[in-house]
Computed example of a mutant assay.
Amino acid sequence: MPVAMTVAGSDSGGGAGVQADLKTFAALGVYGASALTAITAQNTVAVTAVHELPIDLIAAQIEAVVSDIGVDAVKTGMLSSSEIVEVVARELDRHGIKNLVVDPVMIAKSGDPLLRQEAVDSVRTLLVPLACIVTPNVPEAETLTGMKVETDEDMREAARRIIGMGARAVVVKGGHREGPATDLFYDGTEFVEFTSDRFDTVNTHGTGCTFASATAAGLAQGKSVVEAVAQAKEYVTEAIRNSYPLGQGHGPVHHFWQLWDKS
Rank of each mutant, 00 (worst) to 15 (best):
K75L: 03
S196C: 01
Q117T: 09
T125F: 08
Q248A: 12
P245E: 14
V172Y: 11
N43F: 13
A214Y: 07
A239G: 12
S263R: 15
V226I: 14
Q231F: 13
D200A: 13
S80V: 14
L53F: 02
S82D: 15
G249R: 02
G9Q: 02
G32S: 08
A27M: 05
L127E: 03
A46W: 02
D200K: 05
V3H: 05
D103P: 01
F191D: 12
M78H: 01
I55M: 11
L219D: 01
Q42W: 02
T182E: 12
L36W: 11
W260E: 15
G17Q: 07
A35W: 09
S82A: 14
A38P: 03
Q117N: 11
I240R: 01
V102H: 09
V128A: 09
I97R: 01
R161M: 15
Q61H: 09
A232I: 06
K173N: 07
V171Q: 09
E193V: 00
R161Y: 11
A20S: 10
Q248P: 03
R198G: 12
P245F: 13
G77W: 00
S243G: 14
D103S: 01
F199S: 06
V120M: 12
S12E: 13
S110G: 00
V3D: 01
A27Y: 05
A214S: 05
D183F: 05
E142L: 14
D197A: 13
V3C: 06
A38F: 08
D121C: 11
Y186E: 09
C132R: 15
D103V: 04
V87W: 00
A26L: 07
G146D: 15
A33R: 02
S110C: 03
T204S: 06
K223R: 14
G32W: 03
I133F: 02
A216H: 09
P2C: 04
Q248T: 07
T151I: 12
A217P: 08
T195N: 10
G15N: 09
S10I: 11
E86F: 03
V170G: 03
M155S: 07
E238I: 05
I84M: 04
T40D: 01
V170L: 13
G29R: 10
L130A: 08
R198N: 00
R156C: 10
E238N: 12
G179A: 13
Y186S: 06
A46H: 05
L246H: 12
A26I: 01
V87R: 01
E178M: 07
H250G: 00
